[in-house]
Design a protein around this nucleic acid. Sequence first.
DNA 1: TGGCCGGGAGTAAGCGCTTACAGTAAGCGC
DNA 2: GCGCTTACTGTAAGCGCTTACTCCCGGCCA
Lengths: 349, 349
Amino acid sequence: MAARQRTRPTIYDVAREAGVSTATVSRMLNDTGQIAPATREAIEQAIERLGYLPNTIARSLVTKSTQTIAFLLPDITNPFYASLVSGIQQVALESGHTMLLCTTEGDPERELEYLNLLRAKQVDGALMDGLVVPPERIAQFVADGFPIVCLDRDVRSRSVPLVQVDNKLGARLAMEHLLGLGHRRIAHIEGAPELRISAQRLGGYREALAAAGIREDPRLVATGRFSEDGGYEATRELLGRDVSFTAVFAANDLSAIGAINALTQSGLRVPEDVSVIGFDDLRLSAHTIPPLTTIHQPAVEIARRATEILIDLINGRRVRKLRYLLEPTLVVRSSTAPAPRRRRGRGDP
Amino acid sequence: MAARQRTRPTIYDVAREAGVSTATVSRMLNDTGQIAPATREAIEQAIERLGYLPNTIARSLVTKSTQTIAFLLPDITNPFYASLVSGIQQVALESGHTMLLCTTEGDPERELEYLNLLRAKQVDGALMDGLVVPPERIAQFVADGFPIVCLDRDVRSRSVPLVQVDNKLGARLAMEHLLGLGHRRIAHIEGAPELRISAQRLGGYREALAAAGIREDPRLVATGRFSEDGGYEATRELLGRDVSFTAVFAANDLSAIGAINALTQSGLRVPEDVSVIGFDDLRLSAHTIPPLTTIHQPAVEIARRATEILIDLINGRRVRKLRYLLEPTLVVRSSTAPAPRRRRGRGDP
DNA sequence: TGGCCGGGAGTAAGCGCTTACAGTAAGCGC
DNA sequence: GCGCTTACTGTAAGCGCTTACTCCCGGCCA
């Protein structure tokens, strides 16, 4: 009723207004201990009248829990990470947690800085993706009692779990699709070399080549850094290298989109002249021209699983399984087609 | 040196270790008051030895500042919002703030729930975009001492500033481009009707039509809800309505991409048969096939400006200007072309 | 009738910091 | 030698909660 005062009401005000002690109010708020119906009623009314909102900072100081988790990632501008955020948010909300977003831009100092900041802020735990901090540091944070779950790399330590798609398998799936269409000269647009997942996808590319008895041509891989621009540039470089290829396996959808653009600009048709396959299966990829053939990652599933595990860790539950490798699947759309009979350029036996 | 104990060292431990009082340690940490060099040294060493990290929760309890801001938005999956997040993050980091991300999925209850949660968490202030809470509620939070700055709508109240692009102008720019190319029958794919920016862009569409002396045909607008799928469906609906059009102005790039897909699938060529223009200028839009003509929004600039204002508000500075309408610009790429001589279908005089 | 039990409530001690307020000692001008 | 700064430091009172401990009282059983 009264005009809002500058300083918000505290639990003392509520207690006084309801004619009980703060302990009773606290018990009611947290639903611990028994409260007589009449008392409960009085407190509820006092809260209503005062417009009281508990100060969770004060609560955290004593309970040592902030109900906050953090998600550290290099670049929110990549829609794949955005999907992860969605998934995390869902689970977090369900369990009453709120999410701090920390973008590191791939800067190792900033990662460390954030990690320390999060500790200082008494954040309950963190999800990390695409980070480059050395595993030992991560393990140390965990040893210090700060739960972490990784979304991209295996910190070989009990108590820091990993949830990710099986990247190598995904890459093989992509390659087998291309190989099955008769492609022999397949280029790869690598992600960001410093990230594990790049190496894993590159590894799958190589394995598939080897399994098909094709010798790898180093001129056929270029770095696209997981972005549209990077994919575009990498493709132009590939084109300029004067080696022929009839297909490109891009490390992610964004760079595949850049690749298609570069190819098209060079007068090459996708998929008639060159097939392109991506990785991620962004929502967007169903709408590119041509719609992108790609490897589907269950982003929301990954995020949910990881967040659930993190919350288990926070609640002191032991996690049984340390590594969750989810299965990627091939999604065939229109950016891939059988290898053309005649290849452009020379160089292929 | 010693094995990390389960409970982290506090300022008392540091004080004891350094042989000073906690007040002195605190003063050194916060750089307030003068400290003798020798004392400073001793404290620094104690901190180092103990691996001490100040507990910001305890600090917040007394200072009443959490150095945390929140960003509320409907959907992080939209790359435009992701760009905003990037911009916010930059400024926030510079000023030592960390960012809580809250996605509301356009659910009004969840918005309110979040707003209350943020208050309870003593968050210093919030940035809001794409929300549907009634303006009075927002104004009330502000009156309660919770700084808010909006990124999309004008809460007519001193003390809740607005930073956004001039949407109506942007829409007019888009339309004038189309009109200038000779298009007369222009469809519009609307955003999400409940959001202000949709109405503003639709308003610009209408104004431009009126200014060109063209009567608006209600059959020419369909709702795309700002997404690829929505744009796709809206376009199919438009196509199915049996009204002719030679151009479509989509409320954002995502729905423009969906539109191009639908058009292409129907055997129409973009831009030869139908021109398409978007709004946002996502990084991606330079790489679509064909590269998208669109209206550029200075996303990072918007985000930075808004965050700076929020921080000013938090620091108790009066903001001089309440509304910042940034200028959109036309970016011509290849998805628009002069209107074809013969239009498909009938219906146009 | 006495002893026990348990529902319901209060007291007060922190949680880990910051910050008025209050010194103390050295330095300085006269 | 005295009083007044100035530079530095300590004491202790909170910040707004939670939570052991205690306590009270009515009911119930033997």
